[in-house]
Amino acid sequence: MSTTRPIATTRSATGIPTGKLAVWWVIGSEIVIFGGLLASYIMHRLGHPEWAEYASHTNTWFGGANTFVLLTSSLFAVLAHHAAEHGDGKKAAKWLLGTCAGGLVFLCIKAVEWTGEIQHGYTITANGFWHFYYTAAGLHALHVIAGCIIMLIIARDAWKGKELQRVELIGIYWHFVDIVWIFLFPLLYIAK
């Protein structure tokens, strides 16, 4: 493998490192993806009075517990970034593993929650509300899974003291996933 870096990774017209700029553009496109989905949900929810009854069956405690887990994992991600900035790759890797563990706990809680709901007959085909519920939370969960996988790869490098700038980049992505959940939580669990 060549040790020279492609020129695109070393020059910057904006003054922002290329990797970081790329992550922000990913987030820009994610805003349109999740934003479009949530905007569609809001307009349907407002246009369909019968959805109020459907929405009343979601469990606020599951949603609240998952919000707590994601907020805490975001704290771990920013502490990993803090450690990486001080050149402590091992500490950064440990915090990243903590963040990843948060993602796994989130997915486990979601699995228990969905199992109960599906057993009660609230499946993705039950009605419009549950279509949106599983699509929005499912797309979000896919982002959590992707984030965990990338985080493990970055943690492995960080442990060896390599590519420490990437710790911040995965952190930015993870905080965005956290922000999406911050809006999904009131939409699906609180406002009913």
């Binding site: 922000w24 553009w25 987030i27 820009g28 496109s29 805003i31 349109v32 934003g35 479009g36 905007a39 809001i42 307009m43």
Partner: peptide, 13 residues
């Protein structure tokens, strides 16, 4: 960049 994307979302809505 982020505000522009949020504006696109509002335009869609």
């Amino acid at each position: 960049l982020l505000v522009t994307m949020l504006m696109l979302m509002l335009l869609f809505f």
